[in-house]
Amino acid sequence: MNTPIRAVGSLAAERVREVLLAATAAPSLHNSQPWRFRCTPDAIELHADRSRAVPVADPDDRELLLACGAALLNLRLAIQMAGVQADVRMPPGRSQPDLLAVVRPAGRRPATPTCVGLAGAIHQRRTNRRPFQPTPVPLPVRNQLRQAAEAERAWLAIPEQPQLAKLRSLLERAHQVQFADPAFAAEWRYWTGRDLDARDGVPARSCGPAREPQDEWVLRNFGGGSAKARVSGKDFEPEPLICVLGSFQDSLSAQLHAGMAMQRVLLTATTAGLSASFLSQAIEVPAARKELRALIGGGLWPQAVLRIGYGSPVPTTPRRPLEEVVEGEPAHTHRG
């Protein structure tokens, strides 16, 4: 695919390229980048790319939709940074089940200070799998993270003791269930420990140190066998800030909104100087997800579990070029 980027609505071609680059900077399960974008004269369409699904870890495409929701939030913010209104519609998926959203950039709207801050964090955000400092996250910052989730119609639950002890046990059991499955282990090896020239997946340079059996928090080894050994005295922080991002429903639309909320939380954390990584086994194993829902009160559907704290700088993970994820409108399209 070698589709040139053209103007869309009130966005010039170069600005369209910028907003699409922002969209593709979103996080995704194993950096699978399960999205496609279609540019028409007046809109940017977001489609799920199910050819890039991770079917063993994510058989229901839950995390695929979270990733697409995160990309959608980035797209919205980048358009608003251009001083343009981003009109987002989420059409029902009966005729085009992979069409998740249509974003029409039209009209003028000055970017708010909040938008400026969040958009500025899009290319600074990293998934940080390395140890964090033991410094606790202050209460005002925790409140900002909660407010970020609420702004996108979701909720951020922050478990307290003794919930954390139960959550640690839940994560350990889910971890064991997954790696006892040869299909999961094979899928894991496929996506992780990638070479430096890879365009997707998790490169070895982005993995954290190998975990030890006695780790309180189960941080999975993304190094594909190449992770550095743990160094005595430089273990992972004993009490990270653990947050459960939950939605009020569990429909496909709610999962997409949860992805936008997750990304807004991650960007808010980035603006506060925080790092984050995912404890996804609690979401990927159905029994663990059910137990987690009960743990946070039963009124929310857990969609993501985040580990947040003060981390050291980490390198970027690769992204596919826009030419591989963007297509233009067909030359002859009949509109009934």
Rank of each mutant, 00 (worst) to 15 (best):
T270V: 03
L170Y: 05
T135Y: 04
R52E: 00
L29N: 00
M81A: 13
V19Q: 06
P159L: 00
A12I: 07
R130C: 13
H334Q: 10
Q124I: 08
E212Q: 13
R126M: 10
A210I: 07
A149I: 03
A121M: 14
A331Y: 04
S247V: 06
N2Y: 13
Q133R: 11
G309N: 06
R194K: 15
P315K: 03
F184E: 01
R6S: 08
L279V: 09
R15M: 08
D197M: 06
P41D: 08
M262I: 05
P113S: 08
A294Y: 12
G259Y: 00
P140R: 09
A227E: 14
A82E: 12
A26T: 02
E172Q: 14
R104A: 11
Q214K: 09
H334V: 14
L75G: 01
R129N: 00
T114V: 14
A294R: 15
H334M: 11
R94N: 10
M260F: 04
R146Q: 13
T127F: 10
Q263N: 14
G297E: 06
S206L: 14
M262R: 11
E152H: 06
S275L: 03
D87R: 15
F184A: 08
A165V: 11
A258T: 05
L29E: 00
A183N: 15
G223Q: 02
D42L: 12
R129S: 03
R264V: 02
E237I: 01
